[in-house]
Structure formats: structure tokens, C-alpha cells
């Protein structure tokens, strides 16, 4: 009669456990869809955010295969990377990041995996070099042109043979950005001078405000920081005194603080996008137009 704490048996059971582990692993392998290798001989471009991916697609066109590390709709601020991301980085011909505080947390990941022959672009580099620290530059379409210039240079660097195509795509997209700038200005131009106040949770709209002559007030100075009580009181008073009919929240920050404050002040909470694209708003230009229309509708 075998005893269950027989050492031989205990070894066999350990082996069994190991076998089960392997099976679990093997089944996980079967369903693996970590990364799609770049199809054909298209240039592999990896960007940190979905927004940068949209810009890269517009400049690269059919010649590039673009992957964003932070998927559309996800928030940069609470992102957990997976090996698939590192694999994508290691296979990239061109790596595009925003720069500044926005995606600095991905730098170790990028430095650890990017191959030596890959081209690295920090889209906001010229703007950051000018001493501006708010990394949400794209809220001003003029600055987005700078981003796109950087991306174009990166693409040409990585794939000099197609330089002419990249330049042509760039020219087309630049025209669209200039038109976007004009459209935004005319849309929100309908809002009266006194009502040009954007009250939002997270301070990502500084460049938007200075471009179009708005005043922005945010609950938190830094990205997604903790709210201090004094700031809430201050903003509530401002909303009441100025008779502002709406405050704005980004879909990826469902902020209780903002909701409660708005309810207390009896004002509406509108949607505004800072940096995360999602199923409703799929491109940079759509996002900016969506924001402008919402501001105009709720504040007019």
C-alpha cells in the first residue's frame, strides 16, 4: 500500500504538476497573437499614442504599417506594457514618441528594445526645445504641423527611397491642418467673448486656449493628479459668478470630482478629447472638430 507522503510518489506528482503547467503554457501559445509582423515590405512605424499613429499614417500613407503602443481609447496615464509592445518596438524601423512628460515613462521600454538601425523621432522636440513644458502641443494645429514635419523627416531618414512620396503626403496633410485651424476658429468664434472659458478636469488645453484666445481653468495642474479642496471651491465660485453653462470632461477621465462640482453648480458636463482617440473619434482632425463643435454647442 502506497502512502501519499511517499517521497517517490511526491516526485511523480510534482512531475504531473509540471506537465500540467506545460500544457497550460502550450495552450496559451496556441492562441498567441502577440504582434503582426509588418506585412510585405512596408516600413514598420511604432508610435507611443494613437494620435501620433494617426499623424504617421497620414504622412506615411500606403508605405507604412503603424502600431501605437497605447491603444486607442486607453489612457496614457494608466498604461501597462506587454511583451508584444517590446516586440513591436524591437521590429520598428521608425519609433515616434511625443516627448516631454507625456510618454517619458515609455523611454526605458523604448531604449531597451529599439534596434540600433531604427530611426527615433521625438515629435515635440523643436517645441520642447523652445522651453514650453505642456506636452499637449497638438491642441494647437500649428504645432501639429511641427509634429508632422518631424515625422516626415523621420520617415525620409528611415526610407530615403520614398522621400518624394512622404513629402507629397506631408504637403497634402499640412493643407488639411491649416484648414482645420481655420474651421476650429470659425466654429468656436460663435461663442461670445465672455463665455470663452473652458473648465475641465485635466490641464491639457493650454495650447488650444492660447491659440484661440480662450481661458482655461483645470482642476488639476498636472496630468490626472489628486485634486486639492481649495481648487474645487475656487472653480465652483468662478462657474457661479461667470454664469458658465457647462464644464468639460475627457471620456478617459471619468472624474467624480468634476461631476459632483458640476451638479452642485447646476451646470452640464460636456465631452472633450485631449489625447485619446476612440471609436467615436478616430482621427486627430475629427477629434479637434468634435471638441470645437461641443464647445460651441454647450457654451453658446
Amino acid at each position: 500500500m502506497l502512502r501519499w507522503n511517499n517521497p517517490l510518489l511526491s516526485k511523480r506528482i510534482s512531475a504531473l504538476l509540471a506537465a500540467i503547467m506545460l500544457l497550460v503554457l502550450a495552450s496559451a501559445c496556441g492562441s498567441s497573437q502577440a504582434t503582426e509582423p509588418p506585412s510585405g515590405n512596408r516600413l514598420a512605424v511604432v508610435t507611443t499614442t494613437a494620435l501620433l499613429a494617426d499623424l504617421a499614417r497620414n504622412v506615411g500613407g500606403e508605405l507604412v504599417q503603424v502600431t501605437a503602443l497605447v491603444p486607442p481609447g486607453a489612457d496614457v496615464h494608466s498604461f501597462q506594457s506587454t511583451p508584444g509592445d517590446s516586440v513591436a518596438i524591437s521590429l520598428a524601423d521608425l519609433m515616434v514618441s511625443n516627448g516631454g512628460d507625456l510618454d517619458r515613462f515609455l523611454d526605458p521600454l523604448i531604449q531597451g528594445s529599439l534596434s540600433d538601425d531604427a530611426v527615433r523621432v521625438v515629435a515635440a522636440r523643436p517645441l520642447l526645445a523652445a522651453g514650453n513644458t505642456d506636452p499637449h502641443f497638438w491642441q494647437n494645429p500649428e504645432f501639429t504641423v511641427t509634429y508632422v514635419e518631424e515625422i516626415r523627416d523621420g520617415l525620409i531618414n528611415a526610407d530615403p527611397g520614398n522621400a518624394a512620396t512622404y513629402q507629397a503626403n506631408f504637403d497634402t496633410y499640412k493643407d488639411r491642418l491649416i484648414k482645420l485651424d481655420f474651421d476650429i476658429a470659425s466654429t468656436i468664434g460663435r461663442v461670445g467673448q465672455a463665455r470663452r472659458r473652458l473648465i475641465t478636469f485635466h490641464d491639457a488645453f493650454g495650447h488650444f486656449a492660447s491659440r484661440y484666445g480662450w481661458k482655461v481653468t483645470a482642476f488639476v495642474a498636472s496630468d490626472g493628479g489628486e485634486v486639492s479642496p481649495g481648487r474645487v471651491v475656487e472653480i465652483l465660485e468662478e462657474v457661479r459668478e461667470q454664469g458658465i453653462p457647462a464644464v468639460f470632461a475627457e471620456p478617459q477621465f471619468r472624474s467624480d470630482v468634476l461631476d459632483n462640482a458640476a451638479q452642485e453648480a447646476g451646470v452640464e458636463v460636456g465631452s472633450i478629447y485631449s489625447d485619446a482617440l476612440d471609436d467615436d473619434v478616430t482621427s486627430y482632425i475629427d477629434m479637434m472638430l468634435f471638441n470645437a463643435k461641443n464647445l460651441a454647442r454647450l457654451l453658446r
Binding site: D75, V76, H77, S78, F79, Q80, S81, T82, P83, D85, S86, G100, D101, L102, D103, R104, F105, L106, P108, L109, Q111, G112, S113, T133, P135, S222, D223, G224, G225, E226
Partner: peptide, 17 residues
Amino acid sequence: NNYTADLFGLLFGNVLG
């Protein structure tokens, strides 16, 4: 500035980086 992302990095670590 980039409070949440940096905090998340520290809280959850990232052995891939």
C-alpha cells in the same frame, strides 16, 4: 507633471524596461 503614468510605473514596475 505626468503624475499618473509615472506613479503607475512605480506601483506596477515594468520588467520589460
